[in-house]
């Protein structure tokens, strides 16, 4: 299924509605009842207009505390592993296995040299660390693909397991932050963000909360 919206908030809302309407029900490995759409593609054409709006919406509830945007940004941009997290994206992106800075030493020089390149891929899945059947603490965001189209830097993110209500707003913001960083270095505008959620899911016990959040609009 594909969703294409101009703004982040509309894309989020459409994705949630799609999962609630068409998702198949199943029980996950943590015994939670879920609704899931497989391989859901969501394209946000102009994320810069309201990329934090879903986060702002989630922040309005006093039932939970959503991570602050600086912490969400930190996770993807900090190059050293903050010890209080089981894993974080930043070190994998900027210092993969202590050997490769995938952004500054690859993506940016590659797209500078060859703006139409289709090789600008960041990998966040480390088989050495994560191919262990007992290890459940593995990243959801597993790769990002950057392409320059009509002078705009677009990004496509592959997310293997995506909680569309709580997780997607943070993921889109993380993608936007990294996209903006690279776009600035390339002297390009930040373009669209597309997420392909291999498992786009919601939890049945979230349905009331979801309804309350959208009723406020």
């Amino acid at each position: 299924m594909e969703i294409n919206e101009k703004t982040t908030f509309e894309a989020w809302k459409s994705a949630i509605n799609a999962v609630m309407r068409d998702g198949r029900e199943f029980i996950d490995t943590n015994s939670r009842q879920c609704k899931e759409l497989v391989n859901l593609k969501v394209e946000v054409v102009a994320p810069e207009e309201d990329v934090t709006k879903p986060i702002d919406f989630l922040n309005e509830s006093d039932k939970w505390v959503y991570p602050p945007t600086d912490e969400i940004e930190n996770i993807v941009m900090t190059r050293r592993l903050a010890p209080a997290y089981n894993y974080s994206y930043g070190p994998t992106i900027f210092n993969f296995q202590g050997k490769v800075n995938q952004v500054d030493d690859f993506i940016i020089p590659l797209l500078k040299k060859d703006p139409v390149s289709r090789r600008a891929i960041i990998s966040l899945w480390d088989p050495v660390a994560y191919c262990d059947i007992n290890n459940k603490s593995v990243p959801g965001l597993i790769s990002m693909h950057f392409r320059i189209v009509e002078e705009r830097l677009n990004v496509t993110c592959i997310i293997r397991s995506n909680d569309m209500f709580f997780g997607w707003p943070a993921n889109i913001y993380q993608a936007y932050v990294l996209q903006s960083y690279i776009a600035k270095k390339l002297n390009k505008e930040a373009g669209s963000i597309t997420t392909i959620s291999l498992s786009a899911h919601l939890f049945i016990d979230q349905e009331d909360d979801i309804r309350k959040v959208f009723e406020r609009r």
Binding site: W64, V65, P67, I75, A84, Y85, N86, L141, F166, G167
Partner: peptide, 18 residues
């Protein structure tokens, strides 16, 4: 319950923590 929910929220944001 609040603590467990927050851990789940953080996990879904790609920030697994305790």
């Amino acid at each position: 319950t609040f603590c467990d929910s927050e851990e789940t929220i953080y996990l879904s944001c790609g920030m697994p923590t305790r």
